[in-house]
Design a protein around this nucleic acid. Structure first.
Lengths: 344, 344
DNA sequence: TTGTATGCGTTATCAG
DNA sequence: CTGATAACGCATACAA
């Protein structure tokens, strides 16, 4: 009845633990133990197994492992756009950190759309990731809290409080204030602001920082000097054109991110306005390329790569049942050549 | 003996097929059939199952599915750097295409290192991806052919021939030639070339294209005018400084990629050399941001996003047992404002 | 310290 | 058309 079939497996493909066990002359579970360090095994057997593993080129099947053990050793990452220069660095940080401890990231893009982000989280959950990192986005806080009930969640760019949920918040307000103060320190009084999308919390904070910086310098806030942008280059050029068309006087522009600053610089250039001679320009993010623009852009440094690493460490800690206490470095102003003292 | 235990599962977490089956009053395998469309089932049962699925919020477990069915519905992607502006667009293309057919990409970075790339492929195989896309890189052709024996492989930037392997090759030679011809057409005779890494096949081809373009215009190739770069901004500035220090005369520079062109422009700017008035500049790649540099960069357009989509389609076709016939669009020169007729 | 037996959630191969 | 039941590759209580 229970006469075990010979199992003459000479499949070329998948090498299994069973095959390793057989080759090493031990039991299947001993191999598993060695693989996971779950228990102590005799040095002799360990060596035999190690050799068998090497000889057969055995690689554990993560799916079987996941099915049996309940973990996938993968972390879901909801990013907004894989090709965003800013998020790119964060993704690299995530990958590096996760990689160093044997985890793999699973990237999905939310495209700045709340619904899409929710779908992303669904996909990730269906893939049974062990934890999730959400890089900003527009998804509702409530949805975030809900998923945190299912698995460890770290969110960048929010300030929620909930169990199993950790938020990493960059001080965009302070960054905006810093940039503005830099400009007022240089004697500028008419400082235009190209904002980000009003729904974007980061953008709101930078805007508030701008206003605070103005106020600190005793400058009245003038709504006519702020024009909306969309965080990409085109909106920067459009914004400047709109500003110029409105005939408002200004000697400096603070852009809510570097990409818009790039566009702004070009628009200024087209009107033969020189940066920084005619108008000073300050950005936000400190993209890798901002150091190489003409002129090199003064901007607020945001530690994208570090942010990625820290977010990863945070999920890992959450996974280990610890409470992360990581805190992002404070905003730092990088003064380059796009800003200078107001002439006169 | 075989009295089945009650199985009073009221776990909140994972809803299984079994639970759905029970709720719908059908057998487990019927549910599976409906899920996969493996066979025809009565409309009544199908409806019952669909409702049960919706009610319970059932989501199939990809790992169990992978274990049992042998597929993971995921495609591995070996990229070089997640935060490269060029590859970023390709990754987005891959994600979009794969997503539309229910597959998920698994990104790993090779960092332009043959060994790292080999490791990446190992990781991917261990994750049991259904196919792999390799975006250029330095890994040996033989290694590529070897992995193609294991699973469908599409490689971007090579021209290998092997079963189960499909290569997508962008005509870098023609691109390089086009850029050079553009410059010679504008009357330039002394055209410097900032090359990419010599080991990089793409870079070699662009270099050959440069030489071919020169030759076509009856211009002798002058080694003193080519300086090596590393495909990133710094190397562009360094290269220009080196060029300037060498006191070679030149009226134009062709950079093997846009990032180096960015750096070159800055270096020129620092020496008070104007682009394009004093020296014309042409890049390669047509990064999204190259349209916004000052001045906007003339460059060879490379369809990164499309490339990503097409590579994805190719693996999918390979997976379906078809032989892809996709072919990348020809290089196209984008003339903007960084190049102009040689004065005099 | 080591081996045995069971289960993880699905697919697939069988009989009905 | 439908329902048992055997894999899939591994982890893990449990027994030795």
């Amino acid at each position: 009845m229970s006469s075990a079939p010979p199992k003459t497996k000479s499949k070329a493909g998948p090498v299994t633990i069973e095959m390793v066990a057989e080759a090493a002359g031990v039991s299947l579970s001993t191999v598993s133990r060695i693989l996971n360090g779950t228990a102590v095994v005799s040095a002799a057997k360990k060596q035999a197994v190690d050799e068998a593993i090497a000889a057969l080129g055995f690689v554990p099947n993560p799916m079987a492992r996941g099915l049996a053990g309940g973990r996938t050793l993968s972390i879901g990452v909801v990013t907004q756009a894989m090709d965003s220069p800013f998020y790119g660095a964060a993704l690299r940080g995530i990958e590096d950190e996760l990689d160093s401890v044997g985890y793999s990231p699973l990237f999905v893009s939310g495209h700045w759309d709340a619904k899409a982000e929710a779908r992303c989280i669904e996909v990730l959950r269906s893939r049974r990731v062990d934890g999730i990192i959400v890089l900003t986005g527009r998804i509702a806080d409530s949805a975030l809290k809900a998923t945190a009930k299912q698995l460890p969640l770290v969110v960048v760019g929010r300030q929620l409080k909930a169990p199993n949920l950790f938020c990493m918040h960059f001080d965009n307000f302070e960054g905006g204030r810093l940039a503005t103060q830099h400009l007022t320190d240089l004697g500028h009084r008419r400082i235009a602001f190209i904002s980000g999308h009003p729904e974007h919390p980061d953008a709101q904070d930078r805007f508030k920082g701008y206003k605070a910086g103005l106020q600190a310098a005793g400058i009245a806030f003038d709504p006519a000097l702020v024009v909306p942008g969309e965080y990409h280059e085109v909106s920067g050029v459009l914004a400047v054109e709109q500003l110029l068309a409105s005939r408002q006087q200004f000697t400096a522009i603070f852009c809510a991110n570097d990409q818009m600053a790039l566009g702004a610089a070009l628009a200024l250039h087209r009107r033969s306005l020189r940066v920084p001679d005619d108008v000073s320009l300050v950005g936000f993010d400190d993209l890798a390329s901002s150091m190489y623009t003409i002129p090199p852009l003064s901007t607020v440094h945001q530690p994208a790569y570090e942010l990625g690493r820290m977010a990863s460490q945070a999920v890992l800690q959450l996974l280990a049942g610890q409470v992360p206490t990581l805190v992002l470095p404070a905003p730092r102003l990088i003064v380059r050549e796009s800003s200078r003292r107001r002439p006169g």
